[in-house]
Design a protein around this nucleic acid. Structure first.
Lengths: 128, 128
DNA sequence: TCGAAAATTGACTTTTACGTAAATGCCATG
DNA sequence: CATGGCATTTACGTAAAAGTCAATTTTCGA
């Protein structure tokens, strides 16, 4: 496990621009440390970037991603806060379960679409 | 199966604005017929709206949704076109499989986060 | 130590997916 | 017939999430 990554190393690894990583920093999603003015990314920042991009692929907004990331952190110490957090986590999970249903349905329809294409191709292959 | 739906019926059913449905029409995703100037939505339009919103929940852009919808339609008659379409469908499916991996990972992490919260709560419940 | 390559900041621009407002049409009902 | 209630069109507005550009530093390898 490396100790630090430069910004360009990570832009190459994740195929994002430096602007994007700075944007995420401005948004408070990551907090790379500084050596002078230069950003140094720790493995934890790298892991956060991974989670952010995963959230993006699933269609979550930056704010939603921020919420999700907070859920991964140390739980709060106060009972009310804890219960609230559990409620939020459950909501987000329901959200994801909906996405999963959407995903399976879409995959099924695409399977069917491909099958139709393949059949059509077979017909043409036979007739030609 | 009803023959026609009005725009407001559908806005209520799907919880979207009229602006949104008109936007989808402008984008060519749906083509409700007209009685005078008034839009009448057929079951097929209704089904398309369902598919569009499903795509949105999965984080697809309007252009991606347009592509997916085209895949559901009658396959083209020409061999080259058919092969191209099969390739595109396969790409989209790979895309969805990536989303599925992302989704499962996120769900797993949220499961873990909730568990941590519940444990913390149990500790507090005992100590208090 | 010196110069190219890399990094930074700040400002402005762009794209997507609608929101919102204004002016007007259509029609049923009292 | 006027009033209310949806519908429509046109046009401009906006928030999110970066992209792009310019003008500086800063760093690092020879």
């Amino acid at each position: 496990m490396r100790e630090y990554y430069t910004i360009t190393e990570l832009t190459r690894e994740f195929d994002v621009s430096t602007r994007t990583l700075r944007f995420y920093e401005d948004e408070g999603l990551i907090q790379p440390i500084r050596r002078g003015r230069t950003r140094l990314f720790r493995p934890s920042d790298r892991h956060l970037i991974r989670q952010i991009l995963r959230g993006k692929r699933l269609g979550f907004s930056i704010n939603e991603i921020r919420e999700i990331i907070q859920m991964y952190r140390e739980p709060p110490g106060e009972v009310g806060q804890l219960k609230l957090m559990i409620k939020r986590i459950e909501e987000k999970r329901e959200d994801l379960r909906q996405k999963r249903r959407d995903l399976e349905e879409t995959l099924t329809e695409l399977d069917h679409a491909e099958e139709t294409c393949v059949e059509r191709l077979a017909e043409l292959g036979v007739n030609t």
